[in-house]
C-alpha cells in the first residue's frame, strides 16, 4: 500500500511496490487521457531550494496533466528560507496547504529530515549529491520500454559518480535485481562513494569494475548512463575544470558500442555527450525525460491513493 507514503530513497519501497508504479506508468503512456481528471481538487507543492528545469517542470506538468494544481517555489531566495526559516517549519506550513510535496535541496538528507516532521507524502526530488529516486523511476521506465526488464544486463555509469545522485539512486535500485553487472567509468577522484560501493554493491555480491577508460568497455554494455560533472558540487573550481572534460561521448566512441546499447543521461547535458550523438537511435535521453513525466504521474496517483 503506497497511500500516504514518502519516497526519499530507492530502498523505501519494495520491488512489488515499485512494480505497481511502473505498471501504472506504462498504462498512463498507453492512455493518458484516462487520467486527466484523476487529481481534481488535489494540490502538489514543489519546494525547490536548488535550481531545476526538468524535474520541477516534470512534477508540475505531471500534476497538471492529472487535473490537479501546483504551488511552490523554485529557489530558496524566494521562500522564507531567506529569512532563516528551518526546513521543518517550512514543510509543516506547506502541509497546511498541499496534499503532497516534492522537495529538492542542496543539502544531503534534507528530505529525510523533512519527512520526520510532516504527515503528507513527500517525494525527494534530489538532495545534493546524494539521491534522486524519481530520476531512477524515469530511468527504469525507460529501460523497461527499451529492453523489457532491468534484469540480466550490464550497466555502464560514466562521469561524476561521486556526486552524481542519479547514479547513486539507480545503482541502489538495480542492486535489488538478478543478473545485473556494473562498470563504473570515471576519474579516480569521482568514483562512487564508499557507502554505494561497499554497502550496496559489494554487500549484495554484484559483479562490478571501476575503470578510467570508456572505449574498451563499450562493447560489453546494455546501457551506458552518462552524467555531467557538476560544477555546483565542487568546493574547488580548479578540480572542476581539471575533471569536467575527462569523458566525452562522441560518434567515434559510439562506434565501439553494440547496436543494442542504449545511451541514457539524466540531463542537463553540458558537453559530456556531443550533439552529433543526438540523432543516433541509441541515444534515448530525450525520450527518457518524457517518460519522467509519466512515471511521476503514476507516483503521485499511488502516493495519494487514487490508483
Amino acid at each position: 500500500m503506497l497511500k500516504n507514503r514518502s519516497l526519499i530513497d530507492p530502498n523505501d519501497f519494495t520491488r512489488e511496490e515499485f512494480r505497481e508504479i511502473f505498471d501504472l506508468g506504462h498504462q498512463i503512456i498507453a492512455d493518458p487521457a484516462k487520467y486527466s481528471k484523476s487529481c481534481e481538487g488535489k494540490i502538489l507543492a514543489t519546494l525547490f531550494y536548488e535550481p531545476s528545469t526538468r524535474t520541477r517542470l516534470s512534477f508540475e506538468t505531471a500534476m497538471l496533466r492529472l487535473g490537479g494544481q501546483v504551488i511552490g517555489f523554485s529557489e530558496a531566495a524566494s521562500s522564507s528560507t531567506a529569512k532563516g526559516e528551518s526546513i521543518a517549519d517550512t514543510l509543516r506550513t506547506v502541509e497546511c496547504y498541499a496534499d503532497i510535496a516534492a522537495m529538492r535541496h542542496p543539502k544531503e538528507g534534507a528530505p529525510r529530515l523533512a519527512s520526520h516532521y510532516i504527515h503528507m507524502p513527500l517525494i525527494n526530488a534530489g538532495d545534493g549529491g546524494h539521491q534522486h529516486p524519481t530520476q531512477t523511476l524515469t530511468d527504469i521506465l525507460t529501460i523497461e520500454r527499451l529492453r523489457g526488464s532491468v534484469e540480466n544486463k550490464t550497466y555502464g555509469f560514466c562521469g561524476d559518480l561521486k556526486f552524481g545522485r542519479t547514479v547513486h539512486s539507480l545503482v541502489k535500485f538495480l542492486s535489488n535485481y538478478e543478473g545485473v553487472r556494473f562498470i563504473f567509468i570515471s576519474p579516480e577522484e569521482l568514483r562512487v562513494p564508499e557507502y554505494i560501493r561497499e554497502e550496496v554493491v559489494r554487500k549484495k555480491g554484484i559483479p562490478f569494475q571501476e575503470v578510467d577508460q570508456m572505449e574498451p568497455y563499450m562493447g560489453e554494455l546494455d546501457f551506458l548512463y552518462m552524467t555531467r560533472v557538476q560544477r555546483e558540487r565542487f568546493f574547488n573550481e580548479e578540480d572542476y575544470i581539471r575533471l569536467k572534460d575527462r569523458f566525452i561521448l562522441d560518434k567515434a566512441k559510439m562506434a565501439y558500442a553494440r547496436p543494442d546499447t542504449y545511451i541514457l543521461h539524466p540531463l542537463p547535458r553540458v558537453n559530456e555527450i556531443s550533439t552529433e550523438v543526438d540523432d543516433d537511435p541509441r541515444a534515448q535521453y530525450f525520450q527518457q525525460a518524457k517518460n519522467g513525466m509519466y512515471v511521476r504521474m503514476a507516483l503521485i496517483l499511488k502516493l495519494l491513493g487514487i490508483y
Partner: peptide
C-alpha cells in the same frame, strides 16, 4: 559538510 546536519 554537504549533510543537512551541517546547517539545521
Amino acid at each position: 559538510p554537504r549533510c543537512v546536519t551541517s546547517v539545521e
